[in-house]
Simulated scan of single mutants.
Amino acid sequence: MKFSTLIILALFSCSALAYEKIYLKRLLEENQCHHCTLTEAPLNDKDLRGADLSESKLQKINLQNSQLQGAWFTHSKMHEANLEGADLQGALLDYTLLNHANLKNTNLDNAQMIFSNLTGADLSGASMNGTKMRGIIFCNTTMPNGKINNSSC
């Protein structure tokens, strides 16, 4: 009985991994992956300008140093995402959950962040010229100047 349960679990876990590979392939080939699960995907140093990743599960995704100008992340879950050094100029991050995300030295110029959650996020050294922000949750958030913002705790 235990052996057959292990076989079934192994088959389901392989199946889930295959879906993630399909999502990754779709993103890289079509530059869109709406409603995808790309948890922990290694997408550092990629050119994903204008990509649609809205309503996706992107926990612990690695987008370090990636080109993400004009990308859509609306309603995405990006807990613990690594966006260090990424270029997010003009990106849409409305209703995005960026809890404990690494946003060090990101370029967020002219990005839009309406009702996003930045609890525990690190924005040290980030550029935010012209960034549209409204209804943001700041709690233990390290701001670009290195100061901690707890205004929404």
Score class of each variant (00 low, 15 high):
Arg26Met: 06
Leu27Lys: 06
Leu28Asp: 04
Leu28Lys: 14
Asn31His: 12
Gln32Leu: 09
Cys36Asp: 05
Cys36Trp: 05
Thr39Pro: 00
Pro42Trp: 14
Leu43Gly: 00
Asn44Gln: 15
Asp45Ser: 11
Asp47Asn: 15
Leu48Pro: 00
Leu48Gly: 01
Arg49Ala: 13
Gly50Cys: 08
Asp52Thr: 03
Leu53Met: 14
Glu55Ile: 04
Glu55Trp: 12
Lys57Pro: 00
Leu58Ser: 03
Leu58His: 08
Lys60Trp: 12
Ile61Gly: 02
Asn62His: 15
Leu63Ile: 11
Asn65Thr: 05
Asn65Ile: 03
Ser66Val: 08
Gln67Val: 06
Leu68Pro: 00
Gln69Phe: 02
Gly70Glu: 05
Ala71Ile: 01
Trp72Ile: 06
Thr74Tyr: 05
His75Lys: 12
Ser76Asp: 00
Lys77Leu: 11
Lys77Met: 09
Lys77Val: 11
Met78Pro: 04
His79Ser: 08
Glu80Leu: 12
Glu80Asp: 14
Asn82Lys: 14
Leu83Cys: 09
Glu84Asp: 10
Glu84Met: 13
Asp87Lys: 07
Gly90Asn: 10
Ala91Gln: 02
Asp94Lys: 14
Leu97Tyr: 08
Leu98Tyr: 02
Asn99Cys: 07
Ala101Lys: 03
Ala101Ile: 06
Leu103Phe: 07
Lys104Cys: 07
Asn105Arg: 13
Asn105Glu: 13
Asn107Leu: 06
Asn107Lys: 10
Leu108Val: 07
Asp109Leu: 08
Gln112Ser: 15
Ile114Val: 15
Ser116Cys: 08
Ser116Val: 06
Ser116Arg: 01
Asn117Leu: 02
Leu118Trp: 01
Thr119Cys: 04
Thr119Tyr: 04
Ala121Asn: 04
Ala121Phe: 02
Ala121Lys: 03
Asp122Ile: 05
Leu123Ser: 02
Gly125Tyr: 11
Ser127Phe: 08
Met128Pro: 00
Met128Ala: 13
Asn129Thr: 14
Lys132Gln: 15
Lys132Phe: 12
Met133Arg: 15
Met133His: 07
Ile137Pro: 00
Phe138Ser: 01
Cys139His: 10
